Measured scan of single mutants.
Amino acid sequence: TTLHFDLDGKKLQYTGVSEEIARLVEELKRRGVDLKEIVRILEELLK
């Protein structure tokens, strides 16, 4: 799965993300978590 974000005018793309992580990101968005925080979490998970 590939995730795309537009953060402060920067286009971020994460490829090869598992379905689980993609679902987690969608859930965080639904809960109103700040996009910067979501990206920070995502980068930690993908290390």
Rank of each mutant, 00 (worst) to 15 (best):
T2I: 12
T2Y: 04
L3I: 12
L3R: 00
H4Y: 12
H4I: 14
H4D: 13
F5L: 06
F5Q: 01
F5D: 01
D6K: 02
D6I: 07
L7Q: 04
L7N: 04
D8C: 04
D8K: 01
D8G: 07
D8P: 02
G9Q: 02
G9D: 09
G9F: 03
G9T: 03
K10Q: 10
L12G: 01
L12V: 15
Q13S: 14
Q13A: 12
Q13V: 15
Q13G: 04
Y14K: 00
Y14P: 00
Y14R: 00
Y14H: 01
T15M: 10
T15L: 09
T15R: 06
G16M: 07
G16T: 04
G16Q: 11
G16W: 04
G16R: 04
G16H: 14
V17G: 01
S18N: 13
S18Y: 02
E19F: 09
E19D: 15
E20D: 12
E20Q: 11
E20P: 11
I21Q: 12
I21K: 03
A22N: 08
A22V: 15
R23D: 13
R23Y: 13
L24E: 15
L24S: 12
L24F: 09
L24P: 01
V25I: 11
V25L: 06
E26C: 05
E26K: 07
E26T: 11
E26N: 08
E27T: 10
E27D: 15
E27K: 07
L28R: 02
K29E: 13
K29R: 14
K29A: 14
K29P: 02
K29T: 14
R30F: 13
R30A: 14
R30I: 13
R31C: 05
R31Q: 15
G32Q: 11
G32K: 03
G32L: 08
G32C: 08
V33K: 08
V33D: 08
D34C: 06
D34I: 10
D34P: 09
D34T: 09
L35K: 07
L35C: 06
L35S: 10
L35P: 12
K36S: 11
K36L: 10
K36V: 12
K36R: 14
E37K: 06
E37C: 04
I38F: 00
I38Y: 00
I38D: 00
V39R: 03
V39L: 10
I41W: 07
I41G: 04
I41V: 12
I41S: 06
I41Y: 09
L42F: 04
L42I: 07
E43G: 04
E43Y: 03
E43I: 05
E44K: 07
E44F: 07
E44V: 09
E44M: 09
L45Y: 10
L45W: 08
L46T: 05
L46H: 05
K47L: 12
K47W: 11
K47Q: 12
